[in-house]
Each structure stands twice: as structure tokens, then as C-alpha cells.
Design a protein around this nucleic acid. Structure first.
Lengths: 336, 336
DNA sequence: CTGAAAGCGCTTACAG
DNA sequence: CTGAAAGCGCTTACAG
């Protein structure tokens, strides 16, 4: 690279001012058509690169949106992220992704970085234990926040998520309708709103059907494929064995089904299994997995749209927007 | 927010200059211990937020590293990304993630954004069809590039990837050792170096064993779980059916095994299957999947380290660093 | 050990 | 329709 090309390089080459060049490159109608074309051509041939830091320093808009979730590898977030990406792409916002792995320190480091870079907004699925002031900090520094999948009490902003208790009630009620009465629930933690809501749905469905809740059939914890697989050992050690399992998520359910198969039990035949999320794999798994589609892409789309509205001046509102989930019945509950 | 706190706000409050405050906050030994402490305390209580755009404009270092791969949802990249994240975290670099979905336009938009933001470096798995000049453009504008998983001829930079032809040779040779002679290969495309190399390994292993390569048993294309599942249909229509399948990746293999099971065929018993990548799921799948561990975390770690070396002045070198893969024998090839 | 001043590369009123 | 000038918030020689 010879010499860095900047606005003034172009201005000098053309005998114009940097003001005119700046306006022309951003298609201002103030600049004469012919001037604009000469400028754009010169920018092109000289290999000019727009310096966003300089512009952003001046305008205090950066065109950056931060997105932070516990783990982007989780297909559940994958679909949400794709929807967000779509929505933001259309508004020419750059989006910066980050995992917090449910570590508050990682999440804080990320929010800090976004603040320092002057990001325009933040979409996040708050890490376990996120206190409301963490979100106020961002908001008070002109960084509007929208929450997804989980919410934080007193955060003062909008969160978008599936109606988890209703969704889990759908799954468990489906099992009951199928004739199952001995229904366990595997996975999830009451440290997250998602975990609490899904467990609530499980209990409500049982209560509605007049089935007693058995604490020993509630196996909390697993939230990944691997831990779902591992949970089978504990399940098989139960003194009285359930004949159906409502899993916290599809990943847990898929891992759990692998684990059952490993022990010679046929998921969907010997033990009914339901998942939650309706990830792509659910439909092709063997057996295919009965699950709850919780509208991830709607969550992502609406969260992004809400954030964009905030950027355009809409006020912050604390509310929880629930997307209504739907059950997908497949082979894994065909048993009885 | 009352008023934005900046260096000068702190300087005024303390009766110091911005120069001193700037130095103190960055722990310069030039500033007296006691002064530094007063400054840091004032920064803390006033809620000062460091403006990286301004600093970066001045220093032309941004602390940002861009990372771009075809799809972060692919567990293959997931492990690489985790290794990169680890390495970069230790050097306090912010990393910005992006999918290009093998679309050149998306990749270009990302590289452009990184250039505009003054990113310090770029790690990417080049999209199909990436021409060398795309990489030269970045390099010529002070944006050092390191490639992962795939390479581009004439790019002038280092790429890190598994030794794909060797790895696939391991898988196919293993099948041959097990007694299989009718071995198909499913998935991958010759549009990527990865696809070409793995196919080469497949052919070489057959040749070594004196087994003729049959074009109709080479079913290219699938690179995802879903397309692996779909490939079973074509496989079952083959006039002569192979008894073993070497898949392009674990995802393809897992989808393919689901597909076989759906058709009443037992993977690992009726049809042997191998994968590639040794993703987490391979070990717990049912049957567990024989696969090739291609050292993703080493790829990620070394690619990040190489890029950091470039940031510290190391020159660009065109080379392909191959990480030696290892075979993991599991149930899916236990058949005969 | 601390300060005054210039400058990074833009954009934005304001003039003309 | 175009230009001169100020300023965004830092850092970096340079002085003292």
C-alpha cells in the first residue's frame, strides 16, 4: 500500500473540498450529479476505504449491533440468530456476535466492549444471574437493549421469548392424551426463566389431568445433547421407572434417546420422549422427535425489529412478549 | 445519562491534563502512583467509558479481529472458533464473527466492514470461489489474513487445516482392513479444497488396496446433516449396493445413519459408516460413529497464534500448514 | 512527573 | 451547488 487514501486525497485530486466529497459519497442531493460521479469514480480507482471510526466519532452512530447469547452453537439460538441477521442486514447494520457461556464476567466484558465501540444497540439472552443494573448501565449510556429467550425482572426493557409454560403444557398434555401417566421431566434449571417456565408447564399439565407431581421424576440439570445422554443413567436407576419423558429441549431429548438406545431401550416404543424447540434435526432423527416449535425465527425477527425501533427513538418499555408455540407430533411418542 | 464523561471531564475534576489522565488509565509508569490512583478512582465513580473509536482513530489499532466462516452453526467450525476465542481472549482482542454462507458477496461485505472499522486482522475460511485478489485487497490495506480449513491458491498467506487426504485415507483404509470392499463416498464438493482433498484420500486408499474406483459410488453434494439424510434415497437406488459408506463429515454421516435407520437398515450392522471431524456427538450417537479427528482446536489455536504473530510484525508467508488427523474407531464400522 | 498542542479522518452547520 | 472551519475524544511527541 502506497499511501492511505482519505477524503482529502480525493478532494485534492479533484480540486474540491472534503465537505463536497463526503456529501457526494453518501449520495447527498446537495452535490451536483456530475460532481458526484467524478468523485465516486475517483474513490473507486484510488481504492478509497471509508473510515468508519472517524465518521462514528463525529456522528456517534456506529452501525454496530451487538448480539450476545450463551452459546451460538446451540441450534436453538442458531435459528434466532439467523432471523436477527436477516432483519439487521436489511438495515445495513453490522452485527457482532458473542458467547457468554452463562458467565457474567464474559457478558460484562462484551457489553463494555460494545459501549466502548459506541455500538448502536444490543440484543442479548442474559446470562444466568444477570442483575437488572447491568442492563440499566447499557441503557443509561445510550445503548438500547432488547432481550431474547430469557428475561430479567426490573430490567426496564422488552424481552421476546416463546411462551414456555404453555409450550411445555402442550407437550405433557399430548403425552397424557396418548395414555401415558408416568411422565418424568429431564433437564433445565430454575436459574433461568426458561427453565422455570417449562417446569411450571410440566406441573400444570399434570395437575390439570389430576396426576400427582413426583419430585423424584423431575431430573433437572441437562441442557445439552451430551448431558441429556448422561442423564439416562440416573433415569434407569429410578426405583419406579416412568414410561414417558418430557425433555427440556430437543438437544437434551436427542441425547437422551441416544442414551436409551445405548441401553437397549427403544425410544418411542419402550419410552416416549418429547423435546422442545423443533430444531431441524428433530424431524429426521430416528425416531423422529415429537417436540414444540417455539417460534425462534419470530423471536429473532421481532427482537431485531424492536431494537431498530428503539434506534429510531421509540422509548424503552419493560414487557415480556410471548410467542405462542405449537406442538409437532412425531414418532417418539407413538408408543402405546 | 447526565453528561458524557470523557478524559477531559476527569482531568478538569482533578485539575490535571488529559494527557496525564490518558497515561494513568493505561497504567503508564510515567504517572505518579498516587496520581494514578486518584484518576482511576475518579474514572470509576464518574462512570467513565473509554472511547475506543477515538483511541483507534488516533493509534490505528482497533483491538478487533474479524472471523468469517461459512456457517458458525456447523460444529466443525464451532470447535475451531472456541480455540480461536480462547487464544484471542488471552490477548484482549475483541472478535467479531460472521457467516458468509459461501456467498462471495457476504464475505466481501464483511471484509469491507473490517477494513472500515480498522480491524487488526482477519481469520477466515474462504467462501467457495474466493479469488486471491480478495485476500490481497485486505493485506494491502494493513489487514493481515490467516486462512483456516480451506486455502486459496496464490493468496500469499498461511492457511491451517487438517490433512484431509491423509485423514480420509485413514477412514477408508480402516474400512478395507475391516474387510469391506464395496465402499461408497457420500458428500463434499470439489469446489472446496477440503472436498477435493477428502475425495483424493478416498481414491488413494482404494487404489492402494487395488480396489477399482466406481464413479457411481461417489455421491457428491451433501455437507449437512439434512442433506446426508436425504442422500440415502439415492444410495438405495444404486443398482449395486455398497456395504460401506465413507462420509464427507460427521454431520453427513449422522444424517445418513438416521436415513438408513428410517429405511429399516441398521447402520454399523447392515451398512458400515464413517464420518469425519469427530464432533462431540459422534461418540454418543447410536451407533457411535467411527470418524477422523482432524484437530480442529489445533487449527484454531495455531491460526490465531499465527495471526497474532503477524500483528506483531511477522511477514506474510504463503504456506499450507497441515495438522495430522487421527482415526477414532467406534461401533458404526463394527459390522462384518 | 505533568501539561500544551497537534492531529487521527470524518461530518456538520454556516457562508457564500 | 461548493468551501472553510470547527469539533468528535482520544494519544503522542515535545517541553518543562
Amino acid at each position: 500500500m502506497a499511501q492511505k487514501v482519505k477524503l482529502s486525497t480525493i478532494a485534492e485530486a479533484l480540486g474540491l473540498s472534503t465537505a463536497t466529497v463526503s456529501l457526494a459519497l453518501r449520495d447527498s442531493p446537495l452535490v451536483a450529479e456530475s460532481t458526484r460521479e467524478r468523485i465516486k469514480e475517483e474513490a473507486r480507482v484510488s481504492g478509497y476505504i471509508y473510515n468508519r471510526r472517524a465518521a462514528s466519532l463525529r456522528t456517534s452512530k456506529s452501525g454496530i449491533i451487538g448480539v450476545c447469547v450463551s452459546d451460538i452453537m446451540n441450534p436453538f439460538f442458531g435459528e434466532i440468530l439467523k432471523a436477527i441477521e436477516n432483519e439487521l442486514d436489511r438495515h445495513r447494520q453490522t452485527f457482532v456476535l458473542c458467547n457468554h457461556y452463562d458467565q457474567l464476567s464474559k457478558q460484562r466484558a462484551f457489553v463494555d466492549t460494545m459501549l466502548q465501540l459506541g455500538a448502536d444497540g444490543l440484543i442479548m439472552s442474559p446470562a444466568i444471574g444477570t442483575p437488572a443494573p447491568d442492563i440499566h448501565l447499557a441503557e443509561q449510556n445510550d445503548l438500547p437493549v432488547t432481550l431474547i429467550a430469557r428475561t430479567v425482572e426490573g430490567c426496564g426493557v422488552t424481552s421476546f421469548s416463546g411462551d414456555d409454560s404453555y409450550g411445555m403444557r402442550l407437550a405433557v398434555t399430548h403425552l397424557i392424551d396418548k395414555g401415558y401417566r408416568r411422565i418424568a421431566m429431564v433437564g433445565g434449571t430454575d436459574l433461568t426463566s426458561t427453565g422455570r417456565e417449562r417446569e411450571r408447564g410440566y406441573r400444570e399439565a399434570l395437575a390439570e389431568a389430576g396426576i400427582e407431581y413426583r419430585p423424584d421424576w423431575r431430573l433437572p440439570g441437562p441442557r445439552s445433547r451430551h448431558s441429556g445422554f448422561d442423564a439416562v443413567a440416573g433415569f434407569l436407576r429410578l426405583p419406579e421407572r416412568p414410561d414417558a419423558v418430557a425433555c427440556f429441549s430437543d438437544l437434551v431429548a436427542l441425547g437422551f434417546m441416544y442414551g436409551l438406545a445405548r441401553e437397549g431401550l427403544r425410544p418411542g416404543v419402550d419410552i416416549a420422549v418429547t423435546g422442545y424447540d423443533d430444531i431441524d434435526e428433530a424431524a429426521i432423527a430416528m425416531p423422529s422427535l415429537t417436540t414444540v416449535a417455539n417460534g425462534q425465527s419470530e423471536v429473532g425477527r421481532r427482537a431485531a425489529a424492536a431494537l431498530l425501533a428503539r434506534l429510531n427513538g421509540a422509548p424503552a418499555v419493560e414487557s415480556v412478549e410471548l410467542i405462542t408455540p405449537q406442538i409437532k407430533v412425531r414418532q417418539s411418542t407413538e408408543g402405546l
